[in-house]
Amino acid sequence: MKVAIVGFGFNAEKSHVPAYRNRSDIDLTAVVDPVTARRAAALRQYPNIRVYEKFGDLLEEYSDEIDIVDICLPNTFHLESVKQALGADKHVLCEKPLVLNKNEYHELVHIADERKRVLYPCHNYKFAPSIVHAAYLINEGKIGQPLFASFNIFGGGFQGTLPQNKRQSENNPELFGGGIMIDHGLDAISVAQTLFGGSPQQISAHIRNLNETDNQLEDLAVFSLDWEEKLINITVSSLGSMPKSYYRIQGTEGEISIENNDIFLSVKNQPVEQIFIPTNFDDPGHANWFNGLIDNLVDCINTKNTKPFPLMEAGLVLDIIEKANHSNHNGGAWMGI
């Protein structure tokens, strides 16, 4: 399948492209980016691809040669770019978050369904190797019935501090749409759904901008989810100096802890088992997760599955974040979802 990337920034260059390069079923044939230096960076890696300044020019000149449009633009440009791609009858892979509110979400789901095209949000944490293995251990009953989980995701400065995004985020914070709750909060919710299935019934949340930065984007969110008889506590923060993630799941018979590349399985009356699963949570590109995501995208296209689970999950995430904001504005009160 032939792919065009729209927005050749950090996510495209460090996560998507390395996966495409190692696949025989994906051919990167075009890149769109308004910045000359980014188009030049794409050409250095792929001397034979086409490059365009505007997405419309690619669709006008080269549309017949594209099967999938991979959108890696800042959040605020997702809606219109996805609409353009679906309108041209292309399958779409879109970086998270897909959109920022439910009205936009329903609009895109309707267009994708009408056009019979796959719209696939890039919820890559579902394919993190240690998360996949932890889900397997839980499904196998290794820790009995899950009761409680604690997820801590530290973003190390959030995406706005990446060198190529820093000036944009300072001058135009609205480009990044939302803040850490819509980005790393989405990741944590996606992990919970991957591990436990189902959906939460209530949320209590506290969201803060502790650094009091001028852009007013939150840098800390602490929230609890009442998730089908399980309690899940989640902390997402961009206050630290480096990205780190820690997960702990406790059940009736034991617990699972995840620290970067290590899973620790502790079962009652048995020695702790340490399992090495190369995951590299501290690598912001997460390139080694992307193949699983692409496998699932390609499978959805081949089977004509126009309702991939990450698309349904994107709607759940928006519901949860809306109620999290209501809870925060009401002193952390529990809100039904």
Rank of each mutant, 00 (worst) to 15 (best):
F158S: 08
I138D: 00
R117P: 07
C122N: 14
E114L: 15
V99R: 09
E114N: 14
I111Q: 15
T161Q: 06
L137C: 03
Y125P: 01
L147R: 14
A112K: 13
Y125W: 09
K116C: 12
Q164R: 13
V99N: 00
Y120R: 11
N152E: 10
A135I: 12
I143Y: 04
H123G: 00
E107K: 05
N124C: 04
L119E: 00
Q159F: 06
F151K: 02
R115G: 05
P146R: 03
F127A: 07
I138Q: 03
A149L: 00
H123E: 13
L147C: 12
K126R: 13
D113W: 15
G156E: 03
A134S: 14
V132E: 00
S150E: 05
L137I: 07
E140S: 07
H106G: 01
Y136V: 04
P129V: 13
L108I: 08
G157C: 03
A135T: 08
I138W: 02
V109P: 04
H133F: 11
P146N: 00
L108K: 11
K126N: 10
E107I: 13
P146L: 01
K166T: 15
G157F: 03
N124Q: 15
A128N: 02
G160V: 04
Q159E: 03
A135L: 14
P129S: 10
K166N: 08
H106S: 11
I111M: 15
I153T: 01
A112H: 15
K102C: 07
K102W: 11
Y120Q: 07
A128P: 02
L100E: 04
K126Q: 09
N165D: 14
G144R: 02
I111A: 05
V118G: 08
E104D: 12
L100Y: 08
G160P: 03
P121D: 07
F148Q: 13
S130H: 03
N124G: 01
T161F: 06
Q164Y: 08
G155N: 10
R167H: 03
Y136R: 13
H133L: 14
R167D: 10
N165G: 03
N139T: 11
F158E: 09
E140C: 05
A128S: 05
G141W: 08
N165L: 06
H123D: 06
Y105C: 04
I131Q: 00
R115D: 07
P129H: 06
K166I: 09
K142S: 14
S150K: 14
I138F: 03
N124F: 15
R117K: 15
F154A: 10
H106Q: 13
K102H: 15
P129Y: 05
H110L: 15
Y125E: 12
S150Q: 12
V109D: 09
K126F: 05
F158V: 04
V118T: 11
L162E: 00
K102E: 12
L147E: 11
E104Y: 08
G144A: 03
I131M: 01
P121E: 03
N103R: 12
L100K: 10
I143Q: 02
S150H: 10
P146F: 01
I138H: 05
N139D: 15
P163A: 02
N103G: 10
I153P: 00
G141V: 04
A135H: 12
Y105W: 08
A112E: 06
K126A: 05
N103A: 13
